[in-house]
Structures are given as structure tokens and as C-alpha cells.
Simulated scan of single mutants.
Amino acid sequence: MATNTGQMGFLPSGGAIFCTIPDILYLPELIFGGLTLALVASTYLIPYNPQAYVISVTIFCFIVSFFWLMVFACGSHRNKSSWASADVAYHGFATVLYPSASVLLALVTIGIAQIQTETTLIYQLDVAAVVFSFLTTLLYFIHTIFSAIRWKSF
């Protein structure tokens, strides 16, 4: 019997990935992560180190999430529990990376608000990037929890 987290011991493939809770989160993760990347990249990268870290994290997570989406969509995983454990490991890693990038981005945004030498458009773009970054963090966290539940069912 199918549950909200997919069938027990079953990794979906093809169009079925859009019907299970942990796998349906790939698209919002890609959308919000891409928006975060676009918003951060469209502002000035000052200070360089925190902004470069944020861009590196968003690019890494975007590429790997897209890779996982393609693996599950193409059925390359063939229902092996090692893929389920790798899915949990990756999303757990992304859940650690994204909050660190989100906090750094929020600190940079607060710094920009205090300086106010540039136009307010940069500040507004950074605020939007912070919001999308924390939403992406939440999506990765939820995906990790439901992937762990699925992994335990193997």
C-alpha cells in the first residue's frame, strides 16, 4: 500500500517521483535555490568571501539536486537501499551547508542595511535572497527527514 512517503522499501522512478513526498521536493529546491543564486549573483559581491561562499553552496546544491532528480527520473537507481542512504546523506549535507550560507547572507544583508551607500535595490535583492535561502534550507531539511523515514523502511 502506498503512503505519503512512498511505498516501503521502494524508490520511485520516472513520473512517480512527482507523487511521493520526499521526491516531489526536488522541484521547489531547484526553483528556490536557483532564485537564491540569481538574486545573490545580481548584486555586488561585497564582501567577497561570504558572498562567494553563498554562491558556491547554491551552485553545488543546485547541480547535485538536479543530478539526483535525473537519477530518480531516469530510474538509474534500480531500487537499491544504497541509493536511499546516499539520498539521505546528500540532503543531510545540504541541510548543514544551506543554513551556514543563509546566516552569512543575512549578516551581509544587515551590513548593507547599515551602510546604505548604495541604492536600496541592492538591499531589497539581498533581502529576497535571504528569504529564498531560508526557504530552500527548510525544503532541504524536510526532504532529509522524509528521505530518512524512507531509508529506515528498507
Rank of each mutant, 00 (worst) to 15 (best):
F10G: 00
H143L: 01
N49T: 10
M70Y: 07
H91V: 02
A2E: 15
A148V: 07
L35S: 09
L105A: 13
R78M: 00
Q7D: 11
T144I: 07
L105M: 12
S100Y: 01
F141P: 04
C74Y: 03
T136M: 10
P50D: 04
F60P: 08
Y48R: 13
T20L: 04
V54C: 07
S81N: 01
S76L: 02
Y90C: 04
P22M: 01
A38T: 02
I63H: 09
A16Q: 15
T20A: 09
Y26M: 05
P99H: 04
L27F: 11
W68T: 01
I142H: 04
L27C: 11
I122Y: 11
N4K: 11
T119F: 06
D87W: 07
Y98I: 11
F93Y: 08
S13G: 13
K80Y: 01
T120L: 10
I112S: 11
M8R: 15
N79D: 08
I145N: 02
I122K: 06
A2P: 15
I122R: 08
T5E: 09
A128H: 07
D87T: 06
L107F: 11
A101E: 03
S153E: 12
S13K: 14
T136G: 12
I17K: 10
G75N: 01
S81A: 03
Y44I: 03
P99L: 04
A84C: 02
R78A: 00
G111L: 13
H77G: 00
A94I: 06
T43V: 04
R150V: 03
M70P: 00
F62K: 02
D23N: 11
F132K: 04
D87L: 07
L125N: 14
K152P: 00
P47M: 08
A106L: 15
N49R: 10
W83R: 01
A113S: 12
F67G: 11
Y90K: 06
S56D: 04
G14C: 10
N49W: 12
T20N: 04
R150N: 07
I142F: 15
Y44M: 05
S56P: 00
V88G: 03
T119M: 10
G6S: 07
L97V: 05
V108Y: 05
A73T: 01
L125S: 09
Q116D: 14
I55Y: 01
T136D: 14
S153C: 06
I31R: 05
Y44Q: 09
G75T: 03
L25M: 13
G15D: 12
V108H: 13
L39F: 05
A16D: 14
T119A: 08
F72C: 01
A113W: 11
A86S: 04
L25S: 08
F146H: 09
I21P: 02
V88S: 04
P50L: 06
I149W: 04
L97G: 03
T36G: 09
G111M: 08
V40D: 00
T5S: 12
P22I: 05
G92Q: 05
I21K: 13
F154M: 05
I149A: 10
A2S: 14
I46R: 06
F93N: 02
T119E: 08
F146M: 05
